[in-house]
Lab assay of single mutants.
Amino acid sequence: NITNLCPFDEVFNATRFASVYAWNRKRISNCVADYSVLYNLAPFFTFKCYGVSPTKLNDLCFTNVYADSFVIRGDEVRQIAPGQTGNIADYNYKLPDDFTGCVIAWNSNKLDSKVSGNYNYLYRLFRKSNLKPFERDISTEIYQAGNKPCNGVAGFNCYFPLRSYSFRPTYGVGHQPYRVVVLSFELLHAPATVCGPKKST
């Protein structure tokens, strides 16, 4: 009989979030998941669920729940959905087409922007091929755009693959930082360890 609440607040209220290319994953298990708490945590810009209804979450049980978190800019949030393409979905964080879970995003301009520009958040701009779903690539190998090998040196047709967002508070919403948490629900042929409040007794 599990009584402890799932530590969603640790994920959502973390002081620092990860850069999207090096997104963070927390496995959540053996706890009571009260998803209604999430609705009250922040004024969400996005709370979209796929393959599951957000209002039914509190009635369900899962084997595992994974919470992935990272920062992107406002106009990239739409890429965090099944079947999307674009720089983020292709080279940084890719959801599977049959994704079961929820994408939660909110504006973090007050936390993640600086007047002089916050350069701490990076994204991958160049990659030889698209990522597979939930693949994480943290390599910093020089990207070869031409025929000549780069031998690890940046220059003509040889690019450092990561680029930094420079978040400034005066930017338009599309270029402001957004914190994203992706909850993916895993149903294996194994005992369910993460249940809503109704199912945990």
Rank of each mutant, 00 (worst) to 15 (best):
A190W: 12
S184R: 14
L162F: 14
I28Y: 04
E10D: 06
S164T: 05
A105F: 13
Y178A: 11
Y91N: 14
Y35I: 08
N4V: 06
A42H: 08
Y178C: 13
I138R: 14
Y50W: 10
V32K: 04
N58T: 09
I142A: 14
T201A: 00
A42G: 00
K148S: 04
K56I: 12
N40E: 06
H189L: 13
K198P: 04
F47L: 04
R78F: 05
E186H: 05
S29Y: 10
F45M: 02
A105S: 04
K128N: 04
F47S: 12
L111A: 08
S166M: 09
Y119H: 01
L187G: 06
E186W: 10
V115H: 15
T85V: 01
N87R: 02
K132A: 03
K114E: 15
N40S: 09
K148V: 07
N109L: 14
K94R: 10
T63R: 11
A145C: 10
I104L: 07
F62Q: 13
R163D: 14
N64M: 04
L187V: 01
V32N: 06
G155K: 06
E186R: 11
L57M: 08
D59A: 13
N40G: 10
S166Q: 09
S184N: 02
N40K: 05
Y21F: 14
P191N: 08
F160G: 12
P54A: 02
T46V: 00
S116Y: 15
Q144D: 14
L187E: 09
P191Q: 09
V115D: 15
K199I: 10
S164P: 06
R78Q: 07
I138E: 08
R27Q: 04
T201S: 07
R16Q: 10
I2V: 02
S53K: 10
L187H: 13
N64A: 00
I72V: 14
N157R: 12
K110H: 04
L41M: 00
L188C: 00
G174L: 00
D9Q: 10
S116T: 15
A154M: 03
V194N: 05
Y143I: 08
T100Q: 12
S184I: 14
T46Y: 04
R16Y: 06
D98T: 05
S164Q: 11
V173Q: 07
G196D: 13
I2W: 09
L5T: 04
Y119Q: 07
V37Y: 02
L60Q: 02
A154G: 03
A18P: 06
N130S: 12
Y39N: 06
A22K: 11
V173D: 03
F126I: 13
N109D: 13
P133A: 07
A190H: 10
I142T: 14
S200T: 05
F160R: 01
A42P: 02
D90S: 03
P197R: 02
N4Q: 09
L187D: 13
I138A: 08
G51H: 12
L60T: 01
T170L: 15
L5M: 07
A145L: 07
K148F: 08
F160K: 00
A33W: 12
L122V: 14
Y39W: 04
Y119T: 11
E76Q: 09
N120S: 14
Y121L: 14
A67L: 00
N130A: 12
T46L: 03
K128E: 09
N24A: 05
S129E: 06
Y121H: 15
D59M: 10
K110D: 07
K199Q: 08
A22N: 02
S184K: 12
T55K: 03
H189S: 04
P54W: 04
N4I: 12
N151Y: 04
T100K: 03
R16V: 02
N40T: 01
L125Q: 00
N58D: 02
N24T: 01
N109S: 15
H189T: 07
L188N: 08
T100S: 13
Y119C: 05
V77I: 00
R73S: 03
S129D: 02
S129I: 11
T170H: 15
K110A: 08
P191K: 03
I2E: 08
S184A: 10
V173W: 05
I72L: 14
S19D: 15
V173R: 07
G74A: 14
K128G: 06
I138D: 11
V153C: 04
T201L: 02
G83M: 09
L187C: 07
R163C: 13
K26V: 10
N120Y: 07
S129A: 01
L111N: 14
Y35A: 05
E141H: 07
T100N: 12
F47Y: 04
R73A: 04
V115M: 15
K198R: 05
P7D: 07
R16G: 09
A154D: 07
S29V: 09
S184Q: 12
T193N: 00
V194H: 09
A192P: 09
N130T: 08
K199E: 05
N4K: 06
E135D: 14
S164A: 08
K110V: 12
F156L: 06
V153F: 01
P7R: 00
E141T: 10
H189C: 13
Y143L: 14
A190T: 02
I2D: 05
T63Q: 13
N120P: 15
Y119A: 09
P54Y: 12
L122E: 01
G174A: 00
D9L: 10
F44Q: 06
F134N: 13
G174T: 06
L57F: 12
N30D: 11
N118H: 15
L111V: 01
N1E: 00
Q84A: 08
S116E: 15
N151M: 05
D75N: 09
G83S: 14
S200N: 02
G152A: 13
K48E: 05
V32I: 01
L188W: 00
S200W: 05
R27K: 08
G174P: 07
S164N: 13
V153E: 03
G196W: 11
L41V: 03
G174F: 14
K110E: 00
L188E: 02
F156S: 11
K114W: 15
V115Q: 15
D9H: 06
F45P: 05
T170G: 15
P197A: 09
L5W: 05
P149T: 00
Q84T: 11
P191E: 03
S164H: 05
F47M: 12
K199T: 01
E10K: 07
R78V: 06
T15S: 10
T140M: 11
L122H: 05
A145G: 09
S139K: 14
D9W: 09
N1S: 13
K128Y: 07
H175W: 13
K198D: 02
N109A: 03
T55I: 04
I138K: 13
L187T: 00
T15E: 05
G146A: 08
T170W: 15
L41W: 05
H189Y: 08
P7Q: 06
L5C: 13
R163E: 12
P149R: 06
D98G: 13
E10V: 14
N120D: 11
V115G: 15
N4Y: 09
K198C: 08
V115Y: 15
V153T: 00
K199D: 01
K128C: 14
L38M: 08
F47W: 02
